[in-house]
Amino acid sequence: MRLTLDAVSVRVAGATLIHELSLKVGSGEIVGLVGPNGSGKSTALRCVYRALRPSAGTVLLDDTDLRALALAESARSVAALTQENHTELDFTVQEVVALGRYPHSRGNRPLGERERELCRQAMDRTDIAHLADRSVLTLSGGERQRVLIARALVQEPRVLVLDEPTNHLDVRHQVRLLSFLRSCGLTVLIALHDLNLAASTCDRLAVLDGGSLVETGPPVEVLTPELIRRVFGANASVVPHPRTGVPQLLYELTDGEGIEP
């Protein structure tokens, strides 16, 4: 399923959070949104998983305008891992994962055998099966993140929207998650802070700065020392990964004065 953002703008209380953002994610493609803090990555993603309505422009799933779909309808195609993921109630891990079936279920019918199997697979895949009966309130940040990823998978989406999914994850689970994304065949739009992980994972990167798209293309074309300096204000050398050839950044610390413009 293709995901298209067409000239999407979001203005909230007079501030423009993103400005005429246009972006295409082809079927099965992984596109990474990168950019400094406050560049509008999360805002763009929120328009896709419909926590926010664009002030102008449209978001399309294949050729269907999201606005033409009921919330539950689009939730059957688009699953999201959001930044806000806090609950005060002590649901068990199993219960939270099962909520991923919500958009597919009618009323309060209990889950069927296939759906329970889906939940089991997702929990195995995110390595949380042993936590099934634990309260989510007792989990570490990384464990909780994996629970939410499992919930998104149980949604059986065709488009996956991930906002900083590697937050709190240890290296093993970062690699595991991103490897899964490479192999799952889903259309993925992912916001990442770690540019090296982004370069390894994504087919294309879209660089946001101040709410506007400044660059888009394959990692090897986008990640240049010049762009890192201009957009992120950091000095970096770009070297090819010795085994995969993917561009990787080596940062240089400054003397505490910031860097030359």
Binding site: Y49, T82, N85
Partner: peptide, 24 residues
């Protein structure tokens, strides 16, 4: 409330998550 009990579960996850699961 019983009829909407699952929606209440979803709401407990926060408004952002609720939207992504199809709850207004």
């Amino acid at each position: 409330l019983l009829r909407r009990s699952r929606s209440l579960d979803v709401l407990a996850m926060g408004d952002e998550t609720a939207a992504s699961l199809g709850v207004d």
